[in-house]
Amino acid sequence: MAGLDFETVYQEHKGNIWSLVSRYVFTAEDREDLFQEVFINVHRALPRFRGESAVGTWLYRIAVNTAVNQLKKRDRHRKVIEVLSGLRLIEAEEPAAGAGFSLERPLARLSPRQRMVVTLSDIEEKKLEEIAALMALPLGTVKSTLHRAREILKKELSAYDRL
């Protein structure tokens, strides 16, 4: 699609992408890394954009994929370090008494895909059909993933209630 330049795409969509990124990861460093990674991928994919969908949808799909892949990569690195060092880097199954509440901790129990489905559905308030299209998943998979993710999150949050 002619006339679609990176600077315009960045200026028009930076806010939406930041919104998604900052609801998916929570430290300033993670957010900035992910945000930059999304736009680097957009820059690489821009020559192949054929205009079959709206720019916003196309961009959002890249953001979703980048975010899920980045978290998967981080999980793999963490597992390798755990295996090599013999240490467990993930927090204990139950939050320790007196441990401060963090936004990250309950979501850390979810897989990157579950986490994205919850983010898109319950935080960004996207329709399930839209999520299925964005994540290239069957609608049934989205529904079951969301159901399972909510169960895990509620159980995790109830652990804080007992402290």
Partner: peptide, 12 residues
Amino acid sequence: YLGRIRDGKGTA
């Protein structure tokens, strides 16, 4: 919990 995530966008 979802509300806190929604509100905690931070600045860029």
